[in-house]
C-alpha cells in the first residue's frame, strides 16, 4: 500500500492505494500522527483506490479519527466501494466516522468544521 497526499486549504487528503490491512495499518496511523504534529487536523480519507480493507485497517481509521478529534479536527471518508462501505456498516464503524458522498462534500464538511474551529486561515 502507499498513501498519496494532497492538500486543499486546511484539509489534507490521504489516498491509500492498495490494501489497508494488518501489515499496513500502522503506516496510516503514523502518517496521521505526523500530520497532527505539523498542525493538520482535518483529514479526508479518499478510498477510491483502496482495494481491500480488514478489521485492522478499520481499526486504524478509527484510531486516526480519535487522534484527529483529540486535536479538534476529524476524519471524513469518501469514495469507498460498496463492499468496503458494507464492512463499515456491519461493524458500526460508520457511526464513529462520517462518510461523504463525494470528495467535494467531504471537503465541505471538513472545511466548515475547520472554519468553525478557528483553524489557521
Amino acid at each position: 500500500m502507499e498513501i498519496k497526499v494532497e492538500v486543499d486549504n486546511n484539509v489534507v487528503i490521504l489516498r491509500p492505494v492498495g490494501s489497508l490491512v494488518a501489515s499496513t495499518a500502522e503506516f496510516l496511523k503514523a502518517q496521521v500522527a505526523k500530520l497532527v504534529e505539523k498542525n493538520y487536523v482535518h483529514v479526508l480519507l479518499d478510498m477510491a483506490k483502496l482495494e481491500f480493507i480488514d478489521s485492522s485497517g478499520l481499526g486504524a481509521c478509527i484510531a486516526a479519527n480519535k487522534t484527529l478529534a483529540g486535536s479538534e479536527g476529524g476524519l471524513v471518508c469518501t469514495g469507498a466501494s460498496e463492499p468496503v462501505r458494507k464492512i463499515f456498516r456491519i461493524t458500526r464503524a460508520d457511526q464513529k466516522i462520517p462518510f461523504a458522498d463525494s470528495r467535494l462534500d467531504g471537503l465541505r464538511i471538513l472545511q466548515d468544521k475547520a472554519f468553525k474551529g478557528g483553524g489557521k486561515g
Partner: peptide
C-alpha cells in the same frame, strides 16, 4: 471481483490474521 470475492477474502484475512497473531 465483486462482493462475494471481497467478503470471502475478508473472512479469510481475519482468520489468517488471527493465526498470525
Amino acid at each position: 471481483g465483486g462482493a462475494f470475492t471481497f467478503e470471502l477474502a475478508l473472512a479469510a484475512t481475519e482468520a489468517m490474521n488471527n493465526v498470525a497473531e
